[in-house]
Design a protein around this nucleic acid. Structure first.
Lengths: 148, 148
DNA sequence: ATTTTACATTTGTCTATACAATTGTTGTAA
DNA sequence: TTACAACAATTGTATAGACAAATGTAAAAT
C-alpha cells in the first residue's frame, strides 16, 4: 500500500503527516475487512465487541458502565447498542435487584452460539489483514503502538 | 498504552488479535486528538481533507469523482460533504459548462484562509500524537504499514 | 425526615455514513 | 433520429455515533 498512490499526489509528504495518513489508510482497510466478515451475522464491530465482553464475564452479568469501560472504542451510547443486541435475542437485560439504577446484561445461549461463529469469521479477517506480516513484524508493531 | 489495561482483561490475547486491537486503540486516540483540534473550525476531518485536495488543485476546479478518488477515506456521499463546506462558504460549486453532468468545485479565499489555520492546528495534533516516536520509529511504522 | 448530591441509564437531537434508487446528461449504436 | 447504455451527481432511507439534557434511584448532608 503506497500512500502517494492511494491519495494520488505527486508531492512529498512530511514524515509525520505521512505516518498519520498511512495509519488512516490501514485503518480503512481493517474496518472494511472486519465489517465484511461480520456482515452475515448482522452485527457491527462494536456489537461483536460487547458480546465478547459479556462472554468474558462467564455468566456474571455486566452493567452498562462496565461494558463502556471495557469496550475498545468507548461509545457515547451503549444503551442503544445493547438494544440492538437484545432485539436479536443475543443478550438479556434486567434491572439490577440490589441497585435499581443499574442493569444486568447477560449473553444468551443464542448469542453465545452466534458469537462462536463470529469468532471464526474474525479470525479469518485477522489472518487476511495480517497475511504479509511476520511474527517479528507484529511484535515490532505492538512495541511501536505502545509509544502512542 | 497497554492493551490489556485499556480493555481491562487479564487473559493473554493472541498476537494477531492483540495487534488489531492495539491498532484500533491508537486509532481512537488519533481521531479524538484530530477532531479536537479541528473542532474550533467546525469542520470534520473529512471536510478538512477535501479542502486540502482543493488547495492542491491550484485554482483548477475539482469535480466530485476526483475528490472521492483522492480522499483518504472514500465516502459514499461526497455531495453532502461538499454541501457542508459550501454552507460555510469555504467552497464554490458550479455545474461544469462543458459537461453538465459534472460539477466544478473550488476553494474560496475564505476557505483558503481557514485552511491555513487548520493546517497549523493539525500540525500541533500530529506532533502531540507522535511526540514519543523517533524519526526511526516513524520510518519503521511506515515500512510496516506498507505490508498491510 | 427532607433536601441535596451523585450515580446509572435513557432519551432527544443533530450529524455522519452506508447503500440503493433516481435524476439528468452525454455518447453511441441500430 | 431514436433508443439504449454509460456517466456523474443527487436524493432517500436506514443505521450509527456524539453530545447534552432528562429521568429515576441511592446515598449523604443538614
Amino acid at each position: 500500500m503506497n500512500v502517494e498512490d492511494v491519495i494520488k499526489t505527486d508531492k512529498e509528504i512530511p514524515l509525520k503527516s505521512r505516518t498519520i495518513i498511512h495509519f488512516m489508510l490501514v485503518n480503512n482497510r481493517i474496518n472494511e475487512t472486519i465489517a465484511q466478515v461480520l456482515k452475515p451475522y448482522d452485527v457491527s464491530l462494536q456489537q461483536f465487541n460487547v458480546l465478547r465482553i459479556l462472554r468474558g464475564q462467564n455468566g456474571r452479568p455486566a452493567n452498562l458502565s462496565t461494558l463502556n469501560e471495557r469496550m475498545v472504542t468507548k461509545m457515547s451510547n451503549t444503551t442503544r447498542l445493547v438494544d440492538k443486541l437484545k432485539s436479536k435475542a443475543y443478550v438479556d437485560r434486567i434491572t439490577c435487584p440490589s441497585n435499581r439504577r443499574k442493569v444486568e446484561i447477560r449473553i444468551t445461549p443464542k448469542g453465545a452460539r452466534a458469537l462462536e461463529k463470529m469468532d471464526t469469521a474474525l479470525k479469518t479477517a485477522e489472518n487476511d489483514i495480517l497475511k504479509d506480516l511476520s511474527e517479528k513484524d507484529l511484535e515490532q508493531l505492538n512495541r511501536l503502538f505502545d509509544k502512542f
